[in-house]
Design a protein around this nucleic acid. Structure first.
Lengths: 245, 245
DNA sequence: TGATGAAAAATTGTATACGATCTAATTTGC
DNA sequence: GCAAATTAGATCGTATACAATTTTTCATCA
Protein backbone atom coordinates (compact mmCIF):
# COMPACT_ATOMS: atom_id res chain seq x y z
CA UNK A 1 0.00 0.00 0.00
CA UNK A 2 1.67 3.11 -1.22
CA UNK A 3 0.84 6.71 -0.42
CA UNK A 4 -1.02 6.30 2.82
CA UNK A 5 0.59 9.48 4.04
CA UNK A 6 -1.60 11.77 6.08
CA UNK A 7 -1.72 15.14 4.41
CA UNK A 8 -0.18 17.67 6.81
CA UNK A 9 -3.06 19.75 8.08
CA UNK A 10 -2.76 23.48 7.94
CA UNK A 11 -2.30 23.98 11.64
CA UNK A 12 -0.37 21.12 13.15
CA UNK A 13 2.21 21.38 10.42
CA UNK A 14 4.84 23.55 11.99
CA UNK A 15 7.61 22.30 9.74
CA UNK A 16 8.07 23.28 6.12
CA UNK A 17 10.49 22.11 3.51
CA UNK A 18 12.93 24.73 4.74
CA UNK A 19 13.04 23.13 8.14
CA UNK A 20 14.95 20.26 6.61
CA UNK A 21 16.56 22.02 3.67
CA UNK A 22 15.31 19.23 1.46
CA UNK A 23 13.73 19.54 -1.96
CA UNK A 24 10.08 18.48 -2.20
CA UNK A 25 9.66 14.75 -2.63
CA UNK A 26 8.88 11.60 -0.74
CA UNK A 27 11.78 12.01 1.64
CA UNK A 28 10.33 15.32 2.74
CA UNK A 29 6.82 13.84 3.08
CA UNK A 30 8.08 11.21 5.46
CA UNK A 31 10.08 13.79 7.39
CA UNK A 32 7.08 16.02 7.91
CA UNK A 33 4.86 13.13 8.86
CA UNK A 34 7.26 11.74 11.46
CA UNK A 35 7.90 15.27 12.67
CA UNK A 36 4.20 15.83 13.33
CA UNK A 37 3.84 12.45 14.98
CA UNK A 38 6.65 13.26 17.38
CA UNK A 39 5.35 16.75 18.11
CA UNK A 40 1.90 15.39 18.92
CA UNK A 41 3.40 12.79 21.23
CA UNK A 42 2.13 9.89 19.15
CA UNK A 43 5.71 8.68 19.10
CA UNK A 44 7.32 8.59 22.52
CA UNK A 45 10.95 9.48 23.25
CA UNK A 46 13.16 6.42 23.02
CA UNK A 47 10.97 4.60 20.53
CA UNK A 48 12.79 2.64 17.88
CA UNK A 49 12.30 3.78 14.30
CA UNK A 50 13.32 0.78 12.25
CA UNK A 51 14.08 1.55 8.63
CA UNK A 52 12.17 -1.46 7.35
CA UNK A 53 9.14 -0.75 9.54
CA UNK A 54 8.91 2.93 8.63
CA UNK A 55 9.42 2.05 4.98
CA UNK A 56 6.58 -0.46 5.13
CA UNK A 57 4.24 2.10 6.66
CA UNK A 58 4.90 4.75 4.04
CA UNK A 59 5.37 2.36 1.14
CA UNK A 60 8.91 3.55 0.50
CA UNK A 61 12.25 1.84 0.22
CA UNK A 62 14.91 2.07 2.89
CA UNK A 63 16.89 4.51 0.76
CA UNK A 64 14.21 7.16 1.15
CA UNK A 65 13.48 6.38 4.77
CA UNK A 66 17.14 6.61 5.69
CA UNK A 67 17.38 10.08 4.20
CA UNK A 68 14.32 11.15 6.18
CA UNK A 69 15.67 9.76 9.44
CA UNK A 70 19.01 11.46 8.92
CA UNK A 71 17.27 14.77 8.29
CA UNK A 72 15.30 14.34 11.51
CA UNK A 73 18.51 13.42 13.30
CA UNK A 74 20.06 16.66 12.21
CA UNK A 75 17.14 18.62 13.60
CA UNK A 76 17.58 16.79 16.91
CA UNK A 77 14.30 14.88 17.02
CA UNK A 78 15.90 11.55 16.22
CA UNK A 79 19.14 10.02 17.42
CA UNK A 80 21.06 7.62 15.22
CA UNK A 81 23.49 5.09 16.68
CA UNK A 82 25.82 3.39 14.26
CA UNK A 83 24.75 -0.15 13.41
CA UNK A 84 21.89 0.15 15.90
CA UNK A 85 19.47 2.39 14.11
CA UNK A 86 17.32 5.45 14.73
CA UNK A 87 15.36 6.30 17.89
CA UNK A 88 13.15 9.17 18.90
CA UNK A 89 15.52 11.37 20.91
CA UNK A 90 15.51 11.48 24.71
CA UNK A 91 16.86 14.94 25.57
CA UNK A 92 18.96 14.93 28.73
CA UNK A 93 18.16 17.18 31.68
CA UNK A 94 21.16 19.23 30.72
CA UNK A 95 19.86 19.67 27.18
CA UNK A 96 16.42 20.56 28.50
CA UNK A 97 17.92 23.38 30.57
CA UNK A 98 19.89 24.69 27.63
CA UNK A 99 16.97 24.56 25.21
CA UNK A 100 14.81 26.69 27.46
CA UNK A 101 17.66 29.09 28.19
CA UNK A 102 18.16 29.50 24.46
CA UNK A 103 14.45 30.09 23.97
CA UNK A 104 14.51 32.71 26.73
CA UNK A 105 17.28 34.48 24.83
CA UNK A 106 15.88 34.31 21.32
CA UNK A 107 12.08 34.34 21.52
CA UNK A 108 11.64 37.61 23.41
CA UNK A 109 13.68 39.36 20.74
CA UNK A 110 11.50 37.79 18.07
CA UNK A 111 8.34 38.85 19.88
CA UNK A 112 9.56 42.45 19.84
CA UNK A 113 10.31 42.32 16.10
CA UNK A 114 6.95 40.66 15.44
CA UNK A 115 5.09 43.37 17.34
CA UNK A 116 6.60 45.99 15.07
CA UNK A 117 5.89 44.05 11.88
CA UNK A 118 2.38 42.98 12.94
CA UNK A 119 -0.41 43.46 10.40
CA UNK A 120 -4.14 43.01 10.92
CA UNK A 121 -4.14 39.78 8.91
CA UNK A 122 -1.34 38.44 11.12
CA UNK A 123 -3.35 39.12 14.24
CA UNK A 124 -6.25 37.19 12.76
CA UNK A 125 -4.00 34.25 12.00
CA UNK A 126 -2.67 34.18 15.55
CA UNK A 127 -6.21 34.27 16.88
CA UNK A 128 -7.12 31.31 14.73
CA UNK A 129 -4.15 29.41 16.12
CA UNK A 130 -5.36 30.09 19.64
CA UNK A 131 -8.88 28.98 18.81
CA UNK A 132 -7.59 25.75 17.29
CA UNK A 133 -5.52 25.14 20.41
CA UNK A 134 -8.57 25.65 22.64
CA UNK A 135 -10.63 23.33 20.45
CA UNK A 136 -8.00 20.59 20.67
CA UNK A 137 -7.79 20.99 24.42
CA UNK A 138 -11.59 20.86 24.75
CA UNK A 139 -11.71 17.67 22.70
CA UNK A 140 -9.17 16.14 25.04
CA UNK A 141 -6.37 15.79 22.49
CA UNK A 142 -3.46 16.99 24.60
CA UNK A 143 -0.83 16.03 22.06
CA UNK A 144 -2.42 18.13 19.36
CA UNK A 145 -2.96 21.02 21.77
CA UNK A 146 0.73 21.01 22.62
CA UNK A 147 1.71 20.92 18.96
CA UNK A 148 -0.59 23.86 18.28
CA UNK A 149 0.85 25.75 21.20
CA UNK A 150 4.25 25.33 19.57
CA UNK A 151 2.82 26.39 16.23
CA UNK A 152 1.71 29.64 17.88
CA UNK A 153 5.30 30.46 18.80
CA UNK A 154 6.46 29.59 15.30
CA UNK A 155 3.76 31.76 13.76
CA UNK A 156 5.15 34.68 15.74
CA UNK A 157 8.61 34.01 14.38
CA UNK A 158 7.25 33.92 10.85
CA UNK A 159 5.52 37.26 11.36
CA UNK A 160 8.76 38.76 12.62
CA UNK A 161 10.03 37.75 9.17
CA UNK A 162 13.44 36.65 10.36
CA UNK A 163 14.12 33.38 8.64
CA UNK A 164 17.39 32.59 10.35
CA UNK A 165 16.07 33.10 13.88
CA UNK A 166 12.82 31.46 12.83
CA UNK A 167 14.62 28.26 11.89
CA UNK A 168 16.33 28.24 15.26
CA UNK A 169 13.04 28.68 17.06
CA UNK A 170 11.49 25.85 15.06
CA UNK A 171 14.27 23.54 16.11
CA UNK A 172 14.07 24.63 19.76
CA UNK A 173 10.30 24.19 19.88
CA UNK A 174 10.46 20.74 18.35
CA UNK A 175 12.93 19.71 21.01
CA UNK A 176 10.79 21.37 23.66
CA UNK A 177 8.03 18.98 22.72
CA UNK A 178 10.24 16.01 23.55
CA UNK A 179 11.39 17.69 26.73
CA UNK A 180 7.82 18.26 27.83
CA UNK A 181 6.95 14.64 27.06
CA UNK A 182 9.75 13.57 29.40
CA UNK A 183 9.80 16.14 32.18
CA UNK A 184 6.46 17.94 32.40
CA UNK A 185 5.02 17.89 35.92
CA UNK A 186 2.11 20.29 35.97
CA UNK A 187 -1.38 18.99 35.37
CA UNK A 188 -2.75 22.25 34.03
CA UNK A 189 -1.74 23.17 30.53
CA UNK A 190 -4.16 26.09 30.64
CA UNK A 191 -1.69 28.59 32.08
CA UNK A 192 -0.25 28.71 28.60
CA UNK A 193 -3.29 30.33 27.14
CA UNK A 194 -3.12 33.28 29.48
CA UNK A 195 0.35 34.16 28.29
CA UNK A 196 -0.69 33.74 24.69
CA UNK A 197 -3.67 36.03 25.27
CA UNK A 198 -1.45 38.64 26.85
CA UNK A 199 0.91 38.42 23.89
CA UNK A 200 -1.96 38.94 21.50
CA UNK A 201 -2.95 42.08 23.36
CA UNK A 202 0.58 43.48 23.22
CA UNK A 203 0.72 42.65 19.52
CA UNK A 204 -2.56 44.39 18.78
CA UNK A 205 -1.17 47.50 20.47
CA UNK A 206 2.11 47.12 18.60
CA UNK A 207 3.86 47.33 21.96
CA UNK A 208 7.22 45.69 21.29
CA UNK A 209 8.64 46.11 24.78
CA UNK A 210 5.58 44.56 26.38
CA UNK A 211 5.61 41.66 23.94
CA UNK A 212 9.27 41.03 24.64
CA UNK A 213 8.71 41.10 28.38
CA UNK A 214 5.65 38.84 28.28
CA UNK A 215 7.34 36.31 26.06
CA UNK A 216 10.32 36.18 28.37
CA UNK A 217 8.21 35.47 31.45
CA UNK A 218 6.16 33.00 29.47
CA UNK A 219 9.20 30.95 28.61
CA UNK A 220 10.63 31.16 32.10
CA UNK A 221 7.25 29.98 33.31
CA UNK A 222 7.24 27.03 30.92
CA UNK A 223 10.77 26.19 32.07
CA UNK A 224 9.62 26.20 35.67
CA UNK A 225 6.88 23.73 34.79
CA UNK A 226 9.49 21.06 34.20
CA UNK A 227 10.84 18.67 36.78
CA UNK A 228 14.52 18.70 35.94
CA UNK A 229 15.91 17.17 39.10
CA UNK A 230 18.43 14.41 38.55
CA UNK A 231 16.87 11.10 39.36
CA UNK A 232 19.49 8.58 40.41
CA UNK A 233 18.94 5.50 38.30
CA UNK A 234 17.26 2.49 39.99
CA UNK A 235 20.39 0.37 40.19
CA UNK A 236 22.45 2.78 42.26
CA UNK A 237 19.51 3.69 44.49
CA UNK A 238 18.98 -0.01 45.26
CA UNK A 239 22.65 -0.30 46.18
CA UNK A 240 22.32 2.70 48.47
CA UNK A 241 19.20 1.31 50.08
CA UNK A 242 20.81 -2.03 50.84
CA UNK A 243 24.06 -0.49 52.04
CA UNK A 244 22.37 1.58 54.70
CA UNK A 245 19.90 -1.18 55.69
CA UNK B 1 42.34 5.25 -4.67
CA UNK B 2 40.48 4.93 -1.45
CA UNK B 3 41.05 6.87 1.73
CA UNK B 4 42.85 9.88 0.41
CA UNK B 5 40.96 11.97 2.91
CA UNK B 6 42.94 14.73 4.54
CA UNK B 7 42.94 14.19 8.26
CA UNK B 8 41.16 17.13 9.86
CA UNK B 9 43.87 19.14 11.57
CA UNK B 10 43.38 20.06 15.17
CA UNK B 11 42.73 23.71 14.51
CA UNK B 12 40.94 24.17 11.27
CA UNK B 13 38.45 21.51 12.25
CA UNK B 14 35.62 23.55 13.66
CA UNK B 15 33.00 20.88 13.07
CA UNK B 16 32.65 17.74 15.14
CA UNK B 17 30.40 14.76 14.73
CA UNK B 18 27.78 16.60 16.76
CA UNK B 19 27.62 19.33 14.17
CA UNK B 20 25.95 16.89 11.83
CA UNK B 21 24.34 14.56 14.35
CA UNK B 22 25.83 11.67 12.45
CA UNK B 23 27.52 8.59 13.85
CA UNK B 24 31.23 8.25 13.05
CA UNK B 25 31.84 6.72 9.66
CA UNK B 26 32.77 7.60 6.12
CA UNK B 27 29.75 9.84 5.65
CA UNK B 28 30.97 11.98 8.52
CA UNK B 29 34.54 12.03 7.16
CA UNK B 30 33.33 13.41 3.86
CA UNK B 31 31.10 15.94 5.63
CA UNK B 32 33.95 17.28 7.71
CA UNK B 33 36.30 17.42 4.75
CA UNK B 34 33.87 19.32 2.54
CA UNK B 35 33.00 21.53 5.49
CA UNK B 36 36.63 22.53 5.96
CA UNK B 37 37.10 23.06 2.24
CA UNK B 38 34.16 25.44 2.16
CA UNK B 39 35.26 27.27 5.31
CA UNK B 40 38.74 27.80 3.90
CA UNK B 41 37.29 29.13 0.64
CA UNK B 42 38.78 26.33 -1.41
CA UNK B 43 35.25 25.72 -2.68
CA UNK B 44 33.51 28.86 -3.88
CA UNK B 45 29.82 29.63 -3.40
CA UNK B 46 27.76 28.35 -6.32
CA UNK B 47 30.16 25.56 -7.21
CA UNK B 48 28.53 22.33 -8.33
CA UNK B 49 29.15 19.31 -6.12
CA UNK B 50 28.43 16.38 -8.39
CA UNK B 51 27.79 13.13 -6.59
CA UNK B 52 29.94 11.12 -8.95
CA UNK B 53 32.79 13.60 -8.83
CA UNK B 54 32.84 13.86 -5.05
CA UNK B 55 32.55 10.11 -4.78
CA UNK B 56 35.52 9.66 -7.09
CA UNK B 57 37.63 12.03 -5.02
CA UNK B 58 36.93 10.33 -1.72
CA UNK B 59 36.72 6.81 -3.12
CA UNK B 60 33.17 6.33 -1.92
CA UNK B 61 29.94 5.34 -3.60
CA UNK B 62 27.18 7.81 -4.32
CA UNK B 63 25.14 6.42 -1.42
CA UNK B 64 27.64 7.76 1.09
CA UNK B 65 28.27 10.99 -0.76
CA UNK B 66 24.56 11.71 -0.97
CA UNK B 67 24.18 11.37 2.77
CA UNK B 68 27.09 13.74 3.31
CA UNK B 69 25.69 16.33 0.92
CA UNK B 70 22.28 16.16 2.57
CA UNK B 71 23.85 16.68 5.97
CA UNK B 72 25.71 19.72 4.66
CA UNK B 73 22.49 20.95 3.10
CA UNK B 74 20.81 20.81 6.47
CA UNK B 75 23.56 22.90 8.02
CA UNK B 76 23.09 25.45 5.25
CA UNK B 77 26.47 25.17 3.53
CA UNK B 78 25.07 23.30 0.55
CA UNK B 79 21.87 23.80 -1.40
CA UNK B 80 20.18 20.86 -3.07
CA UNK B 81 17.81 21.32 -6.02
CA UNK B 82 15.70 18.35 -6.98
CA UNK B 83 16.99 16.51 -10.04
CA UNK B 84 19.71 19.13 -10.40
CA UNK B 85 22.08 18.27 -7.62
CA UNK B 86 24.04 19.95 -4.84
CA UNK B 87 25.80 23.31 -4.93
CA UNK B 88 27.83 25.28 -2.43
CA UNK B 89 25.27 27.74 -1.04
CA UNK B 90 25.14 31.38 -2.11
CA UNK B 91 23.59 33.18 0.87
CA UNK B 92 21.36 36.08 -0.18
CA UNK B 93 21.93 39.61 1.07
CA UNK B 94 18.88 39.16 3.22
CA UNK B 95 20.28 35.99 4.77
CA UNK B 96 23.62 37.72 5.32
CA UNK B 97 21.91 40.45 7.31
CA UNK B 98 19.99 37.97 9.39
CA UNK B 99 23.00 35.78 10.11
CA UNK B 100 24.96 38.68 11.53
CA UNK B 101 21.96 39.96 13.48
CA UNK B 102 21.60 36.52 15.01
CA UNK B 103 25.28 36.42 15.84
CA UNK B 104 24.98 39.83 17.48
CA UNK B 105 22.21 38.43 19.65
CA UNK B 106 23.76 35.12 20.63
CA UNK B 107 27.51 35.50 20.73
CA UNK B 108 27.72 38.35 23.27
CA UNK B 109 25.71 36.23 25.69
CA UNK B 110 28.05 33.33 25.11
CA UNK B 111 31.07 35.54 25.66
CA UNK B 112 29.68 36.53 29.05
CA UNK B 113 29.09 32.93 30.05
CA UNK B 114 32.53 31.96 28.81
CA UNK B 115 34.18 34.68 30.87
CA UNK B 116 32.64 33.25 34.01
CA UNK B 117 33.57 29.67 33.17
CA UNK B 118 37.07 30.52 31.97
CA UNK B 119 39.94 28.41 33.31
CA UNK B 120 43.68 28.94 32.88
CA UNK B 121 43.89 26.06 30.42
CA UNK B 122 41.09 27.57 28.35
CA UNK B 123 42.94 30.87 28.11
CA UNK B 124 45.99 29.03 26.85
CA UNK B 125 43.92 27.29 24.18
CA UNK B 126 42.48 30.56 22.97
CA UNK B 127 45.95 32.04 22.79
CA UNK B 128 47.08 29.13 20.66
CA UNK B 129 44.16 29.72 18.32
CA UNK B 130 45.21 33.34 17.90
CA UNK B 131 48.81 32.38 17.25
CA UNK B 132 47.73 29.89 14.60
CA UNK B 133 45.60 32.56 12.98
CA UNK B 134 48.53 34.97 12.90
CA UNK B 135 50.76 32.30 11.45
CA UNK B 136 48.29 31.54 8.67
CA UNK B 137 47.91 35.21 7.88
CA UNK B 138 51.70 35.67 7.82
CA UNK B 139 52.05 32.75 5.42
CA UNK B 140 49.50 34.38 3.15
CA UNK B 141 46.82 31.71 3.50
CA UNK B 142 43.79 33.95 3.88
CA UNK B 143 41.29 31.10 3.66
CA UNK B 144 42.90 29.27 6.53
CA UNK B 145 43.19 32.46 8.56
CA UNK B 146 39.48 33.05 8.16
CA UNK B 147 38.64 29.51 9.16
CA UNK B 148 40.82 29.88 12.25
CA UNK B 149 39.17 33.17 13.09
CA UNK B 150 35.86 31.31 13.09
CA UNK B 151 37.37 28.54 15.15
CA UNK B 152 38.25 31.16 17.78
CA UNK B 153 34.60 32.08 18.15
CA UNK B 154 33.61 28.44 18.35
CA UNK B 155 36.24 27.78 20.98
CA UNK B 156 34.64 30.49 23.12
CA UNK B 157 31.26 28.81 22.76
CA UNK B 158 32.76 25.50 23.81
CA UNK B 159 34.29 27.09 26.89
CA UNK B 160 30.93 28.58 27.81
CA UNK B 161 29.84 24.94 27.88
CA UNK B 162 26.44 25.56 26.34
CA UNK B 163 26.02 22.88 23.73
CA UNK B 164 22.72 24.10 22.32
CA UNK B 165 23.88 27.67 21.77
CA UNK B 166 27.24 26.34 20.68
CA UNK B 167 25.65 24.39 17.85
CA UNK B 168 23.82 27.48 16.72
CA UNK B 169 27.02 29.51 16.70
CA UNK B 170 28.78 26.81 14.70
CA UNK B 171 26.09 26.96 12.06
CA UNK B 172 26.10 30.77 11.98
CA UNK B 173 29.87 30.95 11.66
CA UNK B 174 29.93 28.44 8.85
CA UNK B 175 27.44 30.50 6.96
CA UNK B 176 29.38 33.65 7.79
CA UNK B 177 32.30 32.17 5.92
CA UNK B 178 30.21 31.92 2.76
CA UNK B 179 28.87 35.42 3.33
CA UNK B 180 32.36 36.82 3.66
CA UNK B 181 33.42 35.04 0.49
CA UNK B 182 30.60 36.77 -1.35
CA UNK B 183 30.32 40.19 0.22
CA UNK B 184 33.56 41.14 2.00
CA UNK B 185 34.85 44.53 0.91
CA UNK B 186 37.65 45.45 3.29
CA UNK B 187 41.22 44.66 2.36
CA UNK B 188 42.48 44.47 5.92
CA UNK B 189 41.57 41.37 7.84
CA UNK B 190 43.82 42.50 10.68
CA UNK B 191 41.18 44.51 12.50
CA UNK B 192 39.85 41.17 13.65
CA UNK B 193 42.88 40.44 15.74
CA UNK B 194 42.45 43.55 17.84
CA UNK B 195 38.99 42.51 18.90
CA UNK B 196 40.18 39.00 19.67
CA UNK B 197 43.03 40.42 21.76
CA UNK B 198 40.62 42.60 23.69
CA UNK B 199 38.37 39.61 24.30
CA UNK B 200 41.29 37.63 25.62
CA UNK B 201 42.06 40.43 28.08
CA UNK B 202 38.47 40.53 29.33
CA UNK B 203 38.51 36.75 29.68
CA UNK B 204 41.71 36.77 31.67
CA UNK B 205 40.11 39.26 34.07
CA UNK B 206 36.92 37.18 34.15
CA UNK B 207 35.04 40.35 33.26
CA UNK B 208 31.79 39.03 31.78
CA UNK B 209 30.23 42.40 31.05
CA UNK B 210 33.30 43.61 29.21
CA UNK B 211 33.52 40.39 27.20
CA UNK B 212 29.85 40.68 26.23
CA UNK B 213 30.28 44.29 25.16
CA UNK B 214 33.46 43.64 23.18
CA UNK B 215 31.98 40.68 21.39
CA UNK B 216 28.93 42.69 20.43
CA UNK B 217 30.96 45.50 18.89
CA UNK B 218 33.21 42.97 17.24
CA UNK B 219 30.31 41.36 15.43
CA UNK B 220 28.74 44.68 14.50
CA UNK B 221 32.13 45.64 13.13
CA UNK B 222 32.37 42.47 11.07
CA UNK B 223 28.86 43.12 9.78
CA UNK B 224 29.86 46.62 8.71
CA UNK B 225 32.76 45.18 6.75
CA UNK B 226 30.32 43.64 4.30
CA UNK B 227 28.97 45.28 1.18
CA UNK B 228 25.33 44.31 1.34
CA UNK B 229 23.90 46.75 -1.18
CA UNK B 230 21.52 45.24 -3.71
CA UNK B 231 23.16 44.97 -7.06
CA UNK B 232 20.58 44.86 -9.82
CA UNK B 233 21.33 41.78 -11.88
CA UNK B 234 22.65 42.30 -15.42
CA UNK B 235 19.44 41.27 -17.16
CA UNK B 236 17.17 43.80 -15.51
CA UNK B 237 19.76 46.56 -15.76
CA UNK B 238 19.98 45.90 -19.47
CA UNK B 239 16.20 46.19 -19.76
CA UNK B 240 16.31 49.46 -17.84
CA UNK B 241 19.08 50.80 -20.02
CA UNK B 242 17.20 50.07 -23.23
CA UNK B 243 13.89 51.34 -21.95
CA UNK B 244 15.26 54.77 -21.07
CA UNK B 245 17.52 55.01 -24.16
C1' DT C 1 22.92 33.73 -38.70
C1' DG C 2 19.88 32.67 -35.13
C1' DA C 3 16.06 30.22 -33.30
C1' DT C 4 13.73 25.80 -32.72
C1' DG C 5 13.27 21.15 -31.75
C1' DA C 6 14.68 16.41 -31.29
C1' DA C 7 18.00 13.07 -29.96
C1' DA C 8 22.01 11.84 -27.01
C1' DA C 9 24.63 12.24 -22.86
C1' DA C 10 25.01 13.10 -18.25
C1' DT C 11 23.08 13.35 -13.63
C1' DT C 12 20.02 12.48 -10.08
C1' DG C 13 16.09 9.46 -7.67
C1' DT C 14 14.98 5.05 -6.04
C1' DA C 15 15.00 0.05 -5.41
C1' DT C 16 17.35 -3.87 -4.35
C1' DA C 17 21.20 -7.04 -3.14
C1' DC C 18 24.90 -8.46 -0.28
C1' DG C 19 28.22 -8.07 3.46
C1' DA C 20 28.99 -6.41 8.27
C1' DT C 21 27.40 -5.73 12.79
C1' DC C 22 24.47 -6.07 16.55
C1' DT C 23 20.77 -8.56 19.33
C1' DA C 24 18.56 -12.63 21.18
C1' DA C 25 17.98 -17.21 21.86
C1' DT C 26 19.95 -21.57 22.48
C1' DT C 27 23.24 -24.51 23.91
C1' DT C 28 27.03 -25.97 26.66
C1' DG C 29 29.84 -26.42 30.72
C1' DC C 30 30.36 -25.85 35.52
C1' DG D 1 20.37 -23.75 38.22
C1' DC D 2 23.30 -20.18 36.49
C1' DA D 3 26.91 -18.07 33.63
C1' DA D 4 29.40 -18.00 29.49
C1' DA D 5 29.89 -19.12 24.77
C1' DT D 6 27.89 -20.07 20.42
C1' DT D 7 24.68 -19.77 16.86
C1' DA D 8 20.57 -17.91 14.37
C1' DG D 9 18.01 -13.97 13.29
C1' DA D 10 17.30 -9.31 12.47
C1' DT D 11 19.03 -4.74 11.27
C1' DC D 12 22.07 -1.59 9.43
C1' DG D 13 26.03 0.12 5.93
C1' DT D 14 27.28 0.31 1.30
C1' DA D 15 27.55 -0.74 -3.63
C1' DT D 16 25.36 -1.17 -7.72
C1' DA D 17 21.62 -1.26 -11.25
C1' DC D 18 17.95 0.81 -13.51
C1' DA D 19 14.35 4.52 -14.13
C1' DA D 20 13.28 9.45 -14.32
C1' DT D 21 14.77 13.95 -15.19
C1' DT D 22 17.66 17.43 -16.76
C1' DT D 23 21.24 19.29 -19.64
C1' DT D 24 23.82 19.38 -23.71
C1' DT D 25 24.50 18.65 -28.50
C1' DC D 26 23.45 18.95 -33.05
C1' DA D 27 20.73 18.90 -37.02
C1' DT D 28 16.96 21.54 -39.24
C1' DC D 29 14.48 25.43 -40.86
C1' DA D 30 13.12 30.23 -41.30
Amino acid sequence: MARSITAPDGFGAAATHETFQLPPGRTLDICLNLHNAILEHRLAPGMKLSEDEVGEIYGASRTVVRAALQALAHSGLVTIARNRGAFVSRPSIREAQEVFEARALIEPRIARLAAHAMKASDLKKLKKHMDAEHAALASGDKGKALALSGAFHIAIADIADQQVLSQMVRSLISRSSLIIALYWRRADTTCESHAHHALLKAFSEKDGSAAEEIQKSHIVDLHSGLDLREKQDPKSSLADALKSG
